[in-house]
Structure formats: structure tokens, C-alpha cells
């Protein structure tokens, strides 16, 4: 996932999340305040049960799920960023890599080895 893609996804998800909550609230509105006012007036149709149940279900299944999924998506994003940091670092050539072998010393040691091991065969 390129970084620009990540950014876009982030924006989209956040947008969706904030909308989901407001939608949730909206769906749950029961026109309670208006009930008090116009108990007598019935110029507006009472909500049909179908509408109620649909909006109720929508609220639960769609919006809530969107909320949860949005959060999960963002969590997945943080994890992918974490992975990128930990797994794809370039080892620092200058600093981390070992210093060169001390060639002098090593050839000295090797000569010593030859003497010790081989000459003793005599």
C-alpha cells in the first residue's frame, strides 16, 4: 500500500466514521419532541411500522457495523505502518555493519595456525 493510498484511505475512513455516528443518531430519532407538541395534530403521517423496522435494522446492522469496521480498518492501518517500520528498515551500512577484519592480525593468526598444527607433524 503506497503512502498516498494510505492517506486517502485514512481520510475516507474517518469521514465514514463520523457520518456513521450521526446517521445512527438520526435513525434513532423517534420524533419525541414533536410528540409533545402535536399530539392532536396529525398532519403528518405516523411512521409506518415498516419504516420503523427498516430504519431500526439499518441502524443496527449498517451504521453500527460501519462504525466498528471503520475503527478496525484504522487499527489495521496502524499495524501495517508498524510492520513497515520494523520489517523494512535498511541496515545502516556505516554504523551497524561490523568493522573490517584486522587483516594483519588475521594473517598473523593464520601463520601461527600453520605452525602449530602442521609443523607439529614433524
Amino acid at each position: 500500500m503506497s503512502n498516498r493510498g494510505l492517506l486517502e484511505q485514512l481520510e475516507r475512513t474517518t469521514e465514514t466514521l463520523s457520518h456513521s455516528l450521526s446517521n445512527l443518531i438520526k435513525y434513532s430519532s423517534v420524533a419525541k419532541e414533536r410528540d409533545d407538541e402535536d399530539s392532536g395534530e396529525q398532519h403528518e403521517l405516523p411512521e409506518s411500522t415498516a419504516k420503523n423496522s427498516t430504519s431500526g435494522l439499518m441502524m443496527v446492522n449498517a451504521q453500527t457495523a460501519q462504525l466498528i469496521k471503520g475503527i478496525q480498518d484504522l487499527l489495521v492501518m496502524t499495524r501495517s505502518i508498524r510492520e513497515k517500520w520494523l520489517l523494512t528498515q535498511i541496515p545502516d551500512e556505516g554504523v551497524d555493519s561490523q568493522s573490517e577484519l584486522d587483516y594483519e592480525k588475521c594473517s598473523q593468526l593464520l601463520k601461527q595456525w600453520t605452525q602449530e598444527v602442521v609443523s607439529s607433524e614433524e
Binding site: L24, Y27, S28, V30, K32, D35, P46, E47, S48, T49, N52, S53, S55, G56, L57, M59, V60, Q63, T64, A65, L67, I68
Partner: peptide
């Protein structure tokens, strides 16, 4: 009756949503 039903339905959905969350 209908408003009662609506209210009850919404209540329950809200509760459920809250539980889910």
C-alpha cells in the same frame, strides 16, 4: 399504538447497537 411500536423498536435497536459497540 404505532408510535409505541416505533418507540419500542427503536429502543431495542439502540440497545443492540450499543451492545455491539
Amino acid at each position: 399504538e404505532r408510535s409505541l411500536i416505533a418507540k419500542g423498536w427503536k429502543q431495542r435497536s439502540l440497545e443492540e447497537s450499543r451492545t455491539l459497540l
